[in-house]
């Protein structure tokens, strides 16, 4: 029964006067806008989410998606739903954005923040856009508080900052100006890749990684456990034998996929890890 208003809104929207129809109905093409929508807006107003939103490996709200129709960034999936607003990210396919606009849809291409800087403004602006100002303010305040807490606790912990590195399939590692760098710094770590002067994402060879002797190895993507050559590097015996089990952790990609509630969660986990050693 909980879904009934959503179903009605979805199928009969054109036939219903005022009441439900007055509510803005929104479609999203981007995982990060999907997640904020699910956080801030009642689900009956969401007419479509990107298919990533239902992938529990990437989306911490996958179990909330339920029967909301999923899209693959195709105009033909969006148009029949006649949403009042379509949300896209700066990396969304520009062709579908153009096409939807030409078909007289309102499409907002949002600059989804890639680091903690701008997270607050983004959430507030997003709340404004989707008519959920109050919820956005609550969320922003909660994240501010949690992040300030991590920062304060980390400073109180003091001591020498341990050297950490985040290592993903194919040796991809986040350097300066990335969310992971922000989170590591916040929790009081030094980021090896940033110290190697890599801006944004770069690759580290196994050799370089072992040679730097980091104190903490954060494996990215292991929880996906996908079979591929790219993932084999993460299971290389050199890593497993060189590092003690308590030096290696794995952060699920759903924690780092988007800036938002999960960022606070990830920072807290990293800090707890520092306290534990």
């Amino acid at each position: 029964m909980r879904y009934l208003p959503g179903l009605l809104a979805c199928c009969l929207a054109t036939g219903i006067a005022s009441g439900v129809a007055a509510q803005q109905r929104i479609a999203s093409l981007n995982l990060c806008t999907d997640l904020l929508l699910l956080e801030l807006v009642p689900r009956e107003r969401i007419v479509s989410l990107s298919y990533w939103a239902a992938d529990p490996d990437l989306s911490y709200l996958a179990d909330r998606v339920g029967d909301i129709p999923l899209n693959h960034s195709l105009a033909e999936e969006i148009v029949p739903m006649q949403p009042d607003l379509v949300l896209a990210g700066q990396f969304s396919d520009i062709k579908v954005v153009d096409l939807l606009r030409r078909l007289d849809h309102r499409v907002e291409v949002l600059d989804v923040p890639l680091t903690l800087e701008g997270m607050r403004e983004h959430i507030l602006a997003f709340g404004e856009l989707v008519d959920a100002r109050e919820q956005a303010e609550l969320l922003a305040a909660e994240l501010d508080r949690r992040i300030a807490q991590v920062s304060a606790d980390s400073r109180r912990l003091g001591g020498e900052a341990p050297l950490a590195v985040v290592y993903g399939p194919q040796g991809v590692s986040p350097g300066r100006d990335t969310l992971m760098d922000d989170l590591l710094t916040l929790a009081g770590y030094r980021n090896l890749t940033a110290e190697l002067d890599i801006v944004s994402y770069g690759t580290l060879s196994l050799e370089a990684l072992v040679r730097a002797e980091p104190d903490l190895l954060v494996l990215d993507d292991l929880s996906l456990n996908r079979d591929s050559v790219a993932h084999q590097a993460l299971r290389h015996p050199a890593l497993l034998r060189h590092f003690a089990p308590d030096q290696v952790i794995s952060l699920p990609p759903s924690l780092t996929a988007c800036v938002g509630r999960t960022s606070a969660e990830a920072a807290e986990q990293l800090l707890t890890l520092r306290v534990g050693r």
């Binding site: 050799e207 072992v210 040679r211 002797e213 290389h236 015996p237 050199a238 034998r241 060189h242």
Partner: peptide, 9 residues
């Protein structure tokens, strides 16, 4: 790390 690099990598 020398041993790891030489013999494992």
């Amino acid at each position: 790390w020398r041993d790891t690099v030489l013999w494992e990598i």
